[in-house]
Amino acid sequence: MLEFLSRVFGRESTGSKNVAKERLRLVLVHDRANVSPDLLSSLKNDLIKVISNYMEIDEQALEVSLDSNDQQVALVANIPVKRMKRAKSLA
């Protein structure tokens, strides 16, 4: 009944603003991370530094990117390992 009245009096809600908000939220995560291309490259360098303590990696082939799907945005790193360091050689 209330629903019917709502419709009669022009209060039916398609709620498109919620769709707008959700889409914006996702796109802005991406945009904000993209504002500085320096950010990813400095993250990449830091990653290389840390991981190199434990294994030998292919620095040229290393890829770091932000990936988004409908639900979330993820940091994806693809790091080819050339060789594991021996435990004793760890500093």
Partner: peptide, 11 residues
């Protein structure tokens, strides 16, 4: 905004 079809000031 009242019918949920535009982002509000708070949004």
């Amino acid at each position: 905004v009242n019918r949920g079809d535009m982002m509000s000031i708070d949004d």
